[in-house]
Structure formats: C-alpha cells, structure tokens
C-alpha cells in the first residue's frame, strides 16, 4: 500500500492503495466521487471521463501513481457548485439524459470541447464526442445541448 496525495476539484485528498490502482477506483470507491462512472474499463466508452490539467482523460486507463504529483484532476462534482455550469444548464434545457449513466462523462467531454473550441460545427461536435457511448440513444439531444451551450457567451468560464 502506498499513500498518494491527489489534487481533485481544487482540494487535496489522500488515499492509501496499491501501486497501479486505477484512478477510477480511487475516485469512486476510495473517495466517493461516484459521478465518474465505470462501464467498460478499457477506454472504449468514456463514462469515466475526467479532466486532468484541463485535458479530457479516461480515468479507467490511468494509474493513480502517475497523477499524484500536483496534476489538477477535475470530476463532474467539481464542474460547478450548484450544477449550473452552462453546459449542465444546456443539458437540462435539451432534456438530454435518459438513464443518465453516461451523461457525466458526456458532459466532461463536451466541456473540454467548448473550452478549446467555443463554436464547434456539428461535424466537430460529432467527431469530438464520438468516443463516448450512450446506449439510450440520446446523441441528438447531446448535440443539441452542446449547440445550446456554445451559444451561451459564458460557456468557457467556471
């Protein structure tokens, strides 16, 4: 067992786990940040999308050892205080989720897109979001939500 100190959502968290433990299990099972989801464990579905130093990354593929050195980890819980990030608001306006299980990953991926490309075309949205699976088939509403958010002038703040 090794002690790791992680910077998650702008606060410090300490965990004691075996070397090589996936960041996903650390977030979900050790720290209770369960908004980040497990679905495939092999980087195919994107349900575990988090931001590391503002880059979208799949927590299931990451070993905690490599992210305990001051990297800034952001999860859905840290996206906004009251669930009112412009992308979250757009998601509600579009009534995008169905079962909802993949949606936090979708939102983290969408935020990463809008932070670098505030006005994506529909093709850019599809291409950027292609890695995140949704079994309920909410893709068209996700596109709609991202288009709504991209029209919100404050979308890259927060």
């Amino acid at each position: 067992m090794v002690r790791f100190q992680l910077d998650i959502n702008n606060s410090k968290h300490t965990v004691e786990v075996a070397e090589g433990t996936s960041l996903l299990w650390v977030l979900r099972e050790h720290l209770g940040l369960t908004g980040t989801k497990y679905s495939c464990g092999i980087g195919q579905c994107g349900a575990c999308m988090v931001h590391i130093d503002n880059e979208p990354m799949r927590a299931c593929l990451l070993q905690v050892d490599n992210y305990a050195d001051g990297q800034k980890i952001k999860t859905i819980e840290g996206l906004s205080k009251n669930g009112d990030h412009p992308v979250q608001k757009a998601w509600i306006e579009a009534q995008a989720p169905q079962c909802g299980y993949c949606q936090t990953g979708q939102i983290m991926q969408a935020v990463a897109l809008l932070e670098t490309n505030p006005n994506p075309t529909r093709e850019e949205i599809k291409s950027h979001m292609n890695g995140i699976l949704c079994r309920c088939g909410t893709y068209l509403r996700i596109i709609k939500a991202i288009e709504l958010a991209s029209k919100t002038p404050t979308s890259i703040e927060n």
Partner: peptide, 21 residues
C-alpha cells in the same frame, strides 16, 4: 414538463446502485 431527475443526472449526484458505499 421537464423531467424531475435530470438535474441530478447532470451534476453527478444521481445514485445508481453501483454508487452505493
């Protein structure tokens, strides 16, 4: 009418059984 459980599904607080600790 907007669905009641959607806000919890976009902020990560919606509880699925797999989230129980």
């Amino acid at each position: 009418i907007p669905r009641t459980e959607i806000p919890a599904k976009v902020n990560g607080s919606a509880m699925f059984a797999i989230d129980i600790r």
